[in-house]
Design a binder for these strands. Structure first.
Lengths: 74, 74
DNA sequence: AACTAATGTGCAATAAATTGCATATTCTAT
DNA sequence: ATAGAATATGCAATTTATTGCACATTAGTT
């Protein structure tokens, strides 16, 4: 299984990644927000790049989607 | 220049990475927090893994340290 | 050991993230 | 075109992150 590493510049990009992933997994925002343990409202705003989520909110989402947060140190 | 990709599990790990990097760059927390535009108090807490920083706070720090935030999608 | 520099902490006030609700809008399936 | 499903939004209340200050503690240098 080949992976893609996406460098994150801003919150809009985060939103795009997690939305694409959620659609790929074929699950609604409502259901997913429940699984993750975030309010539906917050989750929607994050997907739309409108919220500035805390690290832990982000971690919950990415964990639930089987994604990995990485910091690259040169 | 060879890099290292560090997978992040929790806020403590973030703290460790940015502290190590700051020390490597030989700059005090006070000076660095000013450069970044975060309160000294918040910056200290983040380094100690006590704060749950927003994505944007994290981005400011990593940008200032020449680090990259990545999401890995398999 | 003494002094200075750097880091850490209690605390309250402020700012910003999060939440939940009702409703509007958009999307999808038929 | 229609109905139902899914998503988006205004809003206020609540919760949590952030801030700045004084002072304590630790680290580094001589």
């Amino acid at each position: 299984m080949q992976f893609v590493a996406l460098s994150i510049m801003n919150k809009k990009e985060i939103g795009k990644i997690i939305r694409d992933r959620r659609k790929f997994l074929k699950i609604t925002q409502r259901d997913f927000s429940e699984i993750v343990g975030l309010s539906l409202r917050n989750y929607i705003d994050i997907e739309n790049g409108k919220a500035n989520p805390t690290f832990e909110a982000l971690k919950k989402i990415t964990d639930a989607q089987g994604l990995e947060i990485i910091i690259k140190v040169d």
